[in-house]
Design a protein around this nucleic acid. Structure first.
Length: 442
DNA sequence: TCTGGGGTCCTAGGACCC
DNA sequence: TCTGGGGTCCTAGGACCC
C-alpha cells in the first residue's frame, strides 16, 4: 500500500485557472466494515485503533451520540455491551484493499489523480470542460458507491484548501448529494464565512486558540486580514494557507516516491518491564521496518529505537528515551536493522520502568542501488548472503501477509503471531483479502 | 484496569568553518 | 593578547496532516 502521504508540499509559484476536486470517503473505516455488514446501516458504529485503544472512525449515528474522535474505548464500552453501539477493531488489510479499489475508479475517470491518504484523493481537473465537471463528479459518487460500496463526498474549487472546505459542505449537507462546487467568488466567500477557523486545513489545534485570541473566528475573518499581518503573526505555512483561501494555489503535488522515514511502533496491551521481552518486540518492529525498506527498494543509514512509559500514569516514573544508530553503510536486511535497533535499545533501556510503547524508525533513506560502500572496506559476500536471505523471507512471508503473520523469522524475533500482545477483540473477517483470493489472482 | 500509528515540513539554536 | 561576523550544516522540538 502506498497510500500514506500526508505531508503538504508547497510551491512558490501560483498557477492560474486551476481546479481541483477533493474526493473524501465518508467515515471511511466504518464504511468499509458496513460494506460487508449492510445490517449496520443507520446504526451507531465505531472502529477502534490498534490495541482497541480509542475511537478512530465513527458513523454519523455514533457522532450524534456525542462520541468524540479519539475517545478511549473503555469510556464507551458499556454502550457496546448494552447493544447501543457496534465496535470493530481496526482491520487495515481490508481498508487498504477497498481504498485501492476506490482509487482505481477515480484514476480511470480523470487524467491525473493525487492520492493523499488512505481515504482521500485530489483530482486534477485542468483540461476538463468546466460544464462537464458537475456531471463527472456526480457519476463518480454513484459509481464508487455502487462498485465498491463506500460513500464519498466531492468538493471542487480552485485550490486544494478550498476544495477541502467544499468537500466538508458536500459531506455535511444532504442537499448537495455528495458534490459541492465552489466555482464563483461569491460562493467562496459564503463558504468561508460559514467555516470556523479551526476547520481550515493547515490550522491545527495549537494555532486555533491563537487565532481566536486575535479575533479570527471564521475563515472569512482570516482572509480579510492583511497579508502582512499574517506573515508577521504566523509562519510561512499559515501564510500559504491564507493564499490558498484567497484562491491562489500554492500547495504542490507530493512527487517524491521515496519516503524519508519509516516507522513501526505499537503500544502494548500490558506494560512491559522485562528487557528480554522488550528486545523481542523491538526486533519485530525492526524487521518490519527492514521489510518496508526492501519493498520500496530503499535502504537506511539511521536506525532509531524509542521507548515510552505510560504517560497517563501520573503515579509511575516517566521515561521517554530514544537512541539513533548511524550505520556505516545504508542497510535494509533484517539482520542489520535488527542489530542496530538492539544496539540502540541497549544504550537507553533502564530497569525499573514500566514501558507501554516502543518503536523503531529508519531514516536517512537512499535508493538501495545507490548504496555507497564503507571507507573501511565492506564484506560484499556477507552482504550478498543477507540480501538473498531477506529476499527468500520476503517471498515466503508475502503469502501470509494479510493475516499479519510472518512465517519466517530470525531467531531473535518473537515466535508466533506478530500481533501477540496487541488487543483485537472485535476484528472483522478478512473478507476481501483472504489468502484464497490472493492465491487466485496470482 | 483500559488512552493509536505513521508521516511531513519549518524553525531556532548550536557547532563549525573561514 | 586581541576574541567579529557571516555562512552552512545538523538536530531537536514544534507544528501540521490522515
Amino acid at each position: 500500500m502506498s497510500l500514506r502521504r500526508c505531508g503538504r508540499r508547497f510551491s512558490r509559484f501560483a498557477q492560474n485557472d486551476s481546479m481541483y476536486a477533493l474526493v473524501d470517503c465518508n467515515n471511511f473505516f466504518v464504511s468499509c466494515e458496513r460494506v460487508f455488514r449492510p445490517d449496520l446501516d443507520g446504526r451507531p458504529v465505531v472502529v477502534l485503533s490498534n490495541n482497541d485503544g480509542c475511537v478512530v472512525s465513527r458513523s454519523n449515528e455514533a457522532k450524534a451520540m456525542g462520541i468524540p474522535m479519539g475517545q478511549p474505548f473503555f469510556r464507551i464500552r458499556s454502550f457496546v455491551e448494552n447493544g447501543q453501539l457496534v465496535a470493530f477493531s481496526s482491520n487495515y488489510a481490508l481498508y487498504g484493499d477497498l481504498s485501492a479499489r476506490v482509487m482505481s475508479l477515480l484514476a480511470d475517470a480523470v487524467p491525473h489523480i493525487e492520492i493523499y491518504s488512505i481515504d482521500e484523493a485530489f483530482l486534477h481537473l485542468e483540461g476538463i470542460d468546466p460544464d462537464k465537471v458537475p456531471g463527472l463528479c456526480r457519476d463518480l459518487v454513484a459509481k464508487v458507491r455502487k462498485w465498491v460500496g463506500v460513500p464519498v463526498s466531492i468538493g471542487v474549487a480552485p485550490t486544494k484548501t478550498l476544495a477541502k472546505i467544499a468537500s466538508h459542505f458536500a459531506k455535511k449537507h444532504r442537499g448537495y448529494k455528495g458534490v459541492c462546487l465552489m466555482e464563483t467568488d461569491a460562493k467562496r466567500l459564503k463558504a468561508l464565512s460559514l467555516t470556523p477557523i479551526d476547520d481550515v486545513w493547515g490550522i491545527g489545534r495549537r494555532l486555533a486558540p491563537k487565532m481566536l485570541a486575535k479575533g479570527v473566528k471564521t475563515a472569512l475573518d482570516f482572509v480579510q486580514r492583511p497579508r502582512e499581518w499574517v506573515g508577521e503573526t504566523f509562519n510561512v505555512n499559515v501564510l500559504r494557507t491564507w493564499e490558498e483561501l484567497q484562491g491562489q494555489p500554492c500547495l504542490e503535488e507530493e512527487k517524491e516516491e521515496r519516503r524519508k522515514s519509516i516507522c513501526t511502533s505499537r503500544s502494548f496491551a500490558e506494560m512491559i518491564e522485562d528487557e528480554k521481552e522488550l528486545q523481542l518486540r523491538i526486533s519485530d518492529f525492526a524487521a518490519m521496518c527492514a521489510r518496508k525498506l526492501r519493498q520500496e527498494g530503499s535502504a537506511a543509514y539511521d536506525v532509531t529505537t524509542f521507548l515510552y512509559t505510560n504517560r497517563f500514569r501520573d503515579d509511575l516514573q516517566q521515561y521517554f528515551p530514544s537512541a539513533t544508530i548511524r550505520l556505516e553503510v545504508a542497510a535494509n536486511s533484517a539482520q542489520e536493522i535488527i542489530g542496530a535497533a538492539l544496539r540502540g535499545f541497549r544504550t537507553v533501556y533502564r530497569i525499573g520502568y514500566q514501558y507501554k510503547k516502543a518503536g523503531v524508525v529508519v531514516s536517512n533513506i537512499v535508493p538501495e542501488d545507490e548504496i555507497q560502500g564503507s571507507l573501511f572496506g565492506f564484506n560484499d559476500v556477507l552482504r550478498h548472503k543477507q540480501d538473498k536471505l531477506s529476499e527468500v523471507m520476503d517471498a515466503v512471508n508475502a503469502a501470509a501477509e494479510t493475516s499479519g503473520n510472518s512465517l519466517l523469522r530470525l531467531a531473535v524475533q518473537r515466535p508466533g503471531h506478530y500481533a501477540d500482545g496487541i488487543r483485537s477483540e472485535f476484528r472483522s473477517s478478512l473478507y476481501s483479502t483472504s489468502l484464497d483470493e490472493i492465491i487466485k489472482v496470482r
